[in-house]
Write a protein that binds this DNA or RNA. Structure first.
Length: 938
RNA sequence: GCCCCGGUGGUGGAAUUGGUAGACACGCAGGACUUAAAAUCCUGUGACCCGCAACGGUCGUAACGGUUCAACUCCGUUCCGGGGCACCA
């Protein structure tokens, strides 16, 4: 009887489905455990070997926890709204609902191949009206709430209305301090009394309330591509033109929905201390939130009524300000620029308009333009030139900075480039060649701050600014409110109706507000979404934007707990039972997007009394990214000749026999017909319907050697490897274990299929402990020896520890060691093997279940009890110590574990080899670390 | 540019708390079985040096420097690779 993995895997997958082996109940005496995967976007390309890495890890852990006696929730679903389906629809005319459904079927088939223990009764799809009904419902919760800064939590907006009616907004200032109801920008915040509130019209009241809502409508800049009639991500803009088609892209202000996540900034920071995310992940989140404290300062602009408001974290350096830098998109620049600089300013603004935010931030070249205007230093009256430059972004702080070149590297480079004289306020701490951002220096040339240490001067400066009404203390966040609308079709419609320019909540009884079926997905007029093309939609004055991809994914982990409920998003009893996700596995690419939004939504639902916890994920495990290892061929420009990699002088040039230089094109080839680096010439010629059938090759040593590069795994780079092929060839158990054996889950690594044989051999070797090809059954019911028990218990200990700390790769190697040792002992005893199967079943569930039943068990191994480790079997009385002389290991010595320091010293000094190394000298010190090592210091 | 992570044999990686660097695999080389192949099993395998041999020596964890009895592990500088940077998901 041999290991026939194909029939075994089919048999058990069918059996588990038949018996509902993975069904999970919301009621159980066992303790609960919730293991969650980041659900996939069902792309048309299907699953590649990178996807299952995290899924296998979570599957192993779920099965492990089940063996340990937990009631484990381990669901799966699909993040099914999104841009790719819409773009596919635009190009191929297939409705997103249709292609998405097809893709999901395909994903499901691929997932099923691998033998995951998901409870599929709990599947969710974000594009399902039964699901997005509740996404819309949560949106309405956000829309109808405000953040009460006194209680530090979200409350119904009706409470705010009551407060306004009774006492106005003095106690609840408008979050956006520059908001005014009618007048253009004024200095003082917008405050009204109860009486004034009552005199406001309905539209005015609604306009004010919008300023407080957690989901609100405002105006924001986007990358606008006129030719495509659509908004583009920074990603899709390259050098000022669209990636698709190469059309020009400009900045455009559009009406947008936002989530007021900035109100939660402090709580999002605080919550980090209560959850187990890696330090780097927490650091990324806090950097994203970017809390800083400093001051906003108003500078009078010379010859204008206007003031220039800047935000700075270093008010202590105010006497070192040599110039101002303003974000080029601020409108008022046009009012203050001087006549002679007017043209230059306009040209510069046009240049910046064409650049994405990403490009602006990544720019090494220093660019900028003097406006011709001057600000006046309020303390010493110095006139300070006002510049504009792309490195200052409108969205952060006030969109303007005061530049102190002696203390800030970027400012210094700017001053150097434009030859602006630098004022030194830190004496010898500034060397004139580079900035010094110290806070320890004693200030000079700094008026009333002279002689103070900088970090103390900060407080003094702020107090003076406030006392003189020039500035205020200000805490700032780099994080901006989250843009929450998209001018797209394939997303959740907003449950919002517009009446005379005011947005009103769609009645809850009308949810879900279903996405209408359309035939065309073209963008609407004036940068509106495709929904603006639908007369019935527009006639009802419904919002034509849709929600972004992260809407549905911000709360899906709650829906799994109670997926079929039509009355509430999740029954309170269910969410109280399951509580937080105990283990969440997914990639770091979601560090700041999805993970912050989910945390915010959970906090809002908690504040409003819908949940009993305010952090969704107790522990996060980051899986590394499986990268593709791409292969390239090099074609001489304008010919059909392909040159082997080793013959090129660089990636772009080839020097032929006559020493003529040729430029070459670097072309991706499908990794599936490259063996290592050697191209299969025939397969290449047949590729893509014979596109390269006429290819000629310039070979080296008779071979065509390809170039290689590690990149994201993607269909367009021809570097994807399909798990189905590997499962077909080696079986799901081998595939699962191989993915784990590749290395630590957290680590990113390029995929390499070679090596999978080793894991497959291991499973065959395990099988041979039970069945021999010639002799048939070899397992017996004999009693196990101490040596065999020692092997088993060593494995129990290590597998348990490694699984618990997610070190799956070392667990796989422990299985290999265990089977190697049992083979060596010729151990085929049921007592030992049965326990080993339980250890193995989370990793290789199919073969374990089969052999388990072959041993005569009538119930599934899924519900076996995890073996108990007995330390008695591992007891050692002595240890082979490495003995080092001066830190270099020279010999090994077996000593009892009981020996004392004195005894060790005596034994060591008596040893001939030690004496040889001592060369007659006396040792200074003998270091003895019990159970570790001995070091003799000479 | 800014933020985060990583770099160990020909390859993937191991070394959990600073304590024998290279576990376990892949690959490769040699051998056994076989008419042959597959499968399986055995032996060797970081580099260099000495030697008849050794359970002999030197070097070695991206590079350089530091802390320590002891550094892949801690600190500093540099180089290289990857991820994120707000409308890809």
């Amino acid at each position: 009887m041999e290991y026939n993995f194909r029939s075994i895997e089919k048999k058990w997958q069918f059996n588990w489905a038949e018996t509902n082996a993975y069904k999970v109940s919301n009621e159980s005496d066992k303790p609960k455990y919730y293991v969650l995967d980041m659900f996939p976007y069902p792309s048309g390309a299907g699953l590649h070997v990178g996807h299952p890495l995290g899924y296998i890890a979570s599957d192993i852990y779920s099965r492990f926890k089940r063996l340990k006696g937990f009631n484990v929730l381990h669901p799966m679903g699909y993040d099914a709204f999104g841009l790719p389906a819409e773009q596919y629809a635009l190009e191929h005319g297939v409705h997103p609902a249709v292609s998405t459904d097809q893709n999901i079927r395909n994903f499901r088939k691929q997932l099923d191949n691998i033998g995951f223990c998901y409870d599929w009764d709990r599947e969710v799809r974000t594009c399902d009206p039964g699901y997005y009904k509740w996404t819309q419902w949560i949106f309405l919760q956000l829309f109808q709430s405000f953040y009460n800064r006194h209680t530090q939590k979200a409350s119904p907006i009706t409470e705010l209305v009551t407060i306004f009616e009774q006492e106005g907004n003095a106690a609840h200032p408008v979050p956006n301090s520059s908001f005014q109801l009618h007048a253009p920008q004024q200095r003082k915040p917008f405050v009204f009394s109860a009486e004034a509130w009552k005199t406001f019209s309905e539209a005015e009241q609604q306009k004010i309330l919008m300023e407080y809502r957690l989901a609100f409508c405002g105006y924001g800049e986007v990358n606008w591509c006129e030719a495509l009639g659509t908004v583009l991500a920074n990603d899709e803009v390259v050098n000022g033109v669209s990636e698709r088609g190469g059309h020009p892209v400009v900045k455009k202000k559009l009406r947008q929905w936002y989530l007021r996540i900035t109100e939660y900034a402090d709580r999002l920071l605080e919550g980090l201390s209560r959850i187990e995310f890696s330090d780097s992940m927490k650091e990324m989140q806090s950097n994203w939130i970017g809390k800083s404290s400093g001051a906003e300062i108003d500078f009078q602009i010379k010859g204008h009524d206007q003031k220039l408001r800047v935000y700075t974290t270093r008010p202590d350096t105010i006497f070192g300000v040599d110039f101002m830098v303003v974000a080029p998109e601020l409108d008022w620049i046009n009012q203050v620029k001087s006549a002679d600089q007017s043209k230059a300013v306009e040209e510069y603004i046009a240049y910046v308009q064409s650049r994405s935010e990403r490009e602006r931030m990544a720019e090494k070249k220093i660019t900028g333009c003097f406006t011709g205007a001057y600000a006046v230093n309020p303390f010493d009256g110095r006139e300070i030139p006002i510049w504009i430059s792309e490195y200052v972004l409108a969205g952060y702080g006030t969109g303007a900075i005061m530049a102190v070149p002696c203390g800030d590297e970027r400012d210094f480079k700017f001053a150097e480039h434009f030859k602006i004289p630098v004022t030194n306020i830190i004496g010898k701490h500034f060397n004139g060649r580079e900035a010094n951002p110290t806070k320890e220096a004693i200030l000079e040339n700094s008026g009333f701050l002279n002689g103070m240490v900088m970090k103390e001067a900060m407080e003094v400066a702020i107090q003076k600014l406030e006392a003189e009404g020039i500035g205020i203390r200000k805490v700032n966040y780099k994080m901006r409110d989250a843009a929450f609308s998209r001018q797209r079709y394939w997303g959740e419609p907003f449950p919002v109706q517009w009446k005379e320019g005011t947005a009103y909540a769609w009645d809850v009884s009308g949810l879900p507000l279903e996405l209408p079926y359309v035939e065309s997905y073209q963008p609407g007029p004036e940068g509106e979404g495709p929904l603006a093309n639908i007369p019935e939609w527009v006639s009802k004055e419904l919002e034509t934007n849709t929600m972004p991809g992260y809407a549905g994914s911000s709360w899906y982990f709650l829906r799994y707990m109670d997926p079929h409920n039509t009355e509430v998003f999740c029954d309170r009893k269910a969410s109280d039972y399951w509580g937080q996700v105990d283990l969440y596995i997914g990639g770091t690419e979601h560090a700041v997007g999805h993970l912050l939004y989910s945390r915010m939504w959970t906090k809002v639902l908690f504040d409003l009394g819908h949940l009993s916890f305010d952090e969704p994920f107790k522990k996060l495990l980051n899986q590394g990214m499986i990268q593709g290892s791409s292969r390239f061929v090099y074609r001489i420009n304008g010919t059909n000749r392909f040159v082997s990699k080793g013959l090129l002088t660089s990636d772009e040039t080839y020097l032929d026999a006559e020493a003529v230089e040729h430029k070459v094109d670097k072309i991706h080839v499908d990794v599936n017909f490259v063996d290592g680096y050697e191209l299969d010439l025939d397969a290449f010629k047949q590729w893509r319907n014979g596109e390269f059938a006429q290819a000629e090759f310039v070979l080296e040593d008779g071979k065509y050697v390809c170039g290689s590069e590690v990149e994201k795994m993607s269909k367009s780079k021809f570097n994807t490897v399909n798990p189905d092929d590997l499962v077909e060839k080696y079986g799901a158990d081998t595939f699962r274990m191989y993915e784990m054996f590749l290395g630590p889950v957290e680590l990113s690594k390029p995929w390499d299929t070679k090596g999978i044989e080793g894991v497959h051999r291991f499973l065959k070797k395990l099988w041979r402990l039970f069945y021999d090809e010639l002799k048939g059954q070899v397992w017996t019911a004999e009693k196990a020896t101490d040596a065999e028990l020692k092997v088993l218990h060593k494995a129990i200990k290590k597998i348990e520890e490694d699984t618990e700390r997610f070190s799956f790769n070392t667990a796989v190697s422990t299985f290999m060691i265990c089977v190697n040792e049992l083979s060596e002992l010729k151990c085929s005893k049921k007592d030992i093997l049965e326990q080993l199967l339980i250890l193995l079943t989370p990793y290789a569930p199919h073969i374990s279940e089969e052999l388990w039943s072959q041993l005569g068990n009538k119930t599934s191994i899924l519900d076996a009890a995890f073996p108990k480790f007995e330390s008695d079997y591992l007891k050692e009385s002595s240890k082979a110590y490495p003995v080092a002389i001066n830190g270099k290991t020279r010999l090994e010595m077996t000593l009892s574990l009981e020996v004392t320091q004195q005894e060790v010293e005596a034994i060591i000094l008596a040893d001939a080899t030690v004496q040889k190394w001592l060369e007659g000298k006396q040792p200074k010190k003998i270091i003895y670390v019990k159970n570790k090592m001995i070091n003799v210091v000479v």
